[in-house]
């Protein structure tokens, strides 16, 4: 049941009260968590999703949004293969800060991290303060993915994770191609992911065909970030 092809580590970042923890709960429990307290430091969640016929296990670090917690949360960037930068579509400030969060991710995470901007609370149509179009343009200019979600209704939530996972899978497959062409992983430019290195935030599971090089590990084995 728990077998997977890949293990990807994700990080959820963004201003406080934009709904990061609610997105995580929505993904994992398929429900909206009402009356939950704000995150202190970092919380953790996990789910296996299907992406392009592969079983991908996500380990997600959900961070506290307040500035003061940066000293704790920044240590989680390095081990992440994917980052979700969440803002609240009803609050322009949280959208303006997207660029700061992106800068953080670009500085602290690996160069090949896959990033998506997530406009949450899409159910609050009457209170919308950030249009889909402007956010989409901003994401394009910054070369990151973009989607809107509603943690309340669940709309778009799984898609966000699938989208980032797909991007990472593509990078891995590009890397595989290079290997087949005899170039190897290590001579590659950044942007390609080596599932055999622990540091990439990507880890091959027991089901993986890529696993020939390393001895079979139990599927549930985890690595630190």
């Amino acid at each position: 049941m728990d077998a997977y092809d890949y293990l990807f580590k994700f990080i959820l970042i963004g201003d406080s009260a934009v709904g990061k923890s609610c997105i995580l709960t929505s993904l994992i429990e398929n429900k909206f968590k009402k009356g939950s307290s704000h995150t202190i430091g970092v919380e953790f969640g996990s789910k296996i999703i299907n992406v392009s016929g592969k079983r991908v296990k996500l380990q997600i670090w959900d961070t506290a949004g307040q500035e003061r917690y940066r000293s704790v949360t920044r240590s989680y960037y390095r081990g992440a293969a994917g980052a979700l930068i969440v803002y609240d579509i009803t609050n322009r400030d949280t959208y303006h800060h997207l660029i700061n969060w992106l800068a953080d991710a670009r500085t602290l995470a690996r160069a090949d991290i896959s990033i998506i901007a997530v406009g949450n609370k899409s159910d609050l149509k009457d209170k919308r303060a950030v249009t889909f179009l402007e956010a989409s343009r901003c994401a394009q200019e910054n070369e990151i993915l973009f989607l809107e979600t509603s943690a309340l209704t669940g709309e778009g939530v799984e898609e966000v994770f699938v989208k980032v996972a797909k991007m990472i899978l593509n990078k891995i497959e590009d890397g595989m191609q290079h290997i087949e062409e005899g170039l190897g992983y290590h001579g590659l430019f950044s942007g390609l992911i080596d599932p055999a290195t622990m540091m990439s935030g990507v880890h091959a599971g027991a089901r993986s065909l890529l696993n020939e090089a390393s001895p079979a590990e139990p599927a549930s084995r985890c690595i630190s970030c």
């Binding site: 307290s37 202190i40 430091g41 970092v42 953790f44 704790v72 240590s75 985890c222 690595i223 630190s224 970030c225």
Partner: peptide, 20 residues
């Protein structure tokens, strides 16, 4: 050995004195 760091679980214990 399982890669668990104390900060990962005990930060909250210190920040909120086990209130959570």
């Amino acid at each position: 050995n399982n890669g668990l760091e104390f900060l990962q679980f005990s930060f909250r214990w210190m920040n909120c004195f086990l209130m959570r």
